[in-house]
Design a binder for these strands. Structure first.
Lengths: 241, 241
DNA sequence: CGCAATATTGAAAACGATCAAGGGTCGTGG
DNA sequence: CCACGACCCTTGATCGTTTTCAATATTGCG
């Protein structure tokens, strides 16, 4: 089912009625494909639309005036793309397809209209936005207070946990289309250093990232090293019933 | 007027009707005072309430398993405190009073109920949450891709800009209750280094932070150094009319 | 007035960046 | 089918920024 990814996700937080789901389904029609590198939204763009990612990976980032790139988050199937940008007249960040992707467009006006018909939808979307923010906050902790090795482990563990929720990872690991440059720009490190860190993690038999595949060799020890605590990702069932 | 700070803020994004404002006013009754160091919400707390800050400064932070603290953001009058924590069953971060503060409590249930009566309120709150996220994202860029000096300048410029919106700063500078330890924990630096950075900024005649007062000696040059672009804070009037 | 918190400075050490070079892989076009 | 270029990965050497450790002011508050 096309809209299942989003409705499934929102339902974990707020119990949605048949009417709510119908309202939701009404504006999830425009399904589109994008090639690698396509910019779904870019800084300064006005009236950008948001998307729900159905297939593939994307990432959101900002650039500094001197041209450095900071990746804010990676998005995997089921995630919103550019939710924040539809609330601002002009977008403050970029969203780019990391692989070929398939995504469903969501128009701002549709979304706001839907809030009037289905107020629980509003709560659900607010929750989704808050969960995104919780992830950004954890990335901030990552950059501010963890060493290069801890950071790298933490990011890959987070991605593993998120992918597991949508059936794209298991305890062993996951397929990962990121380059070391992507990791570097997400972790606030140089690509050279990321390479060294990955080698060191491999040598310690903690984890391996090679040829597009992340393998967790010692999940427990890795989790401990990274100080990884999933509580910022966890939901224990609908808050609103 | 008590609820003016919040309603003023929300109104800049979404035009709210008399009814909307009345709905808003209904749950902004419990005004409370807190002393320095009071923890308004803490990690793991269940059913935390949110607040709207009326007077004084607060800050939100997370801690790592090894006890390091990362300050996520500072809050000044007019800001939400712990908005994200009411959406999660258990809070994922801490909020602490940095000075004596005065704040109005907002109960989760009140807020969700209000969405049914006043859907535009939902959009407005979603916008407020998104603006908070935009600030966190900019802090992430700060830690990931700027030097210690740029970072420090950027944070203090941001605080100046935000305080200006509520009349607590002007082009010259602002009163600032932060210690160098607060700055260090927000910037991902050691307090010792923050001290050296502040000295260097002073020696370059860019800005001064001493005795609880931030003075911008050369706003233009400082802005340029920090790569400070206010667009992530700006609003050009209501999006929904 | 006295203590605790905050600010300041120096010296040494660590971490990560930068510079530089080489190797692998994949897709495209000749 | 091979050659080439683009992109990505890898490693070594050196440099610079920031941390850590340590000691000493200074400030503010009860």
């Amino acid at each position: 089912m096309h809209q299942s990814a989003l409705s499934l996700k929102l339902s974990t937080f707020v119990s949605l009625s048949e009417t709510d789901l119908a309202t939701l389904a009404r504006f999830l029609i425009r399904r589109r494909n994008f090639t690698v590198g396509y910019e779904l939204t870019h800084e300064g763009q006005v009236n950008a639309s948001a998307f729900v990612l159905a297939e593939g990976w994307a990432f959101s980032y900002k650039t500094t005036p001197d041209g450095d790139r900071q990746i804010v988050d990676f998005q995997v199937p089921g995630d919103f793309l550019g939710l924040r940008s539809i609330l601002f007249r002009t977008s403050d960040h970029n969203v780019e397809a990391l692989t070929r992707i398939e995504a469903t467009e969501v128009l701002a006006s549709d979304l706001f209209d839907a809030f009037a018909d289905a107020p629980r939808l509003a709560t659900a979307v607010l929750w989704a936005a808050s969960r995104d923010e919780a992830m950004v906050v954890e990335h901030l902790v990552n950059l501010g207070r963890r060493t290069a090795e801890e950071r790298t482990a933490h990011l890959l563990l987070e991605l593993g946990a998120r992918l597991k929720l949508v059936g794209l990872a298991d305890d062993a690991g996951f397929d990962c289309p990121l380059t070391q440059y992507h990791l570097a720009d997400a972790l606030g490190l140089s690509a050279v250093h990321v390479n060294r860190v990955l080698r060191h993690l491999r040598e310690q038999k903690l984890m391996t990232f090679q040829k597009g595949r992340v393998v967790f060799d010692d999940f427990a020890r890795l989790t401990d090293l990274a100080g990884f605590d999933t509580s910022y990702l966890d939901q224990d069932g609908p808050l609103l019933r």
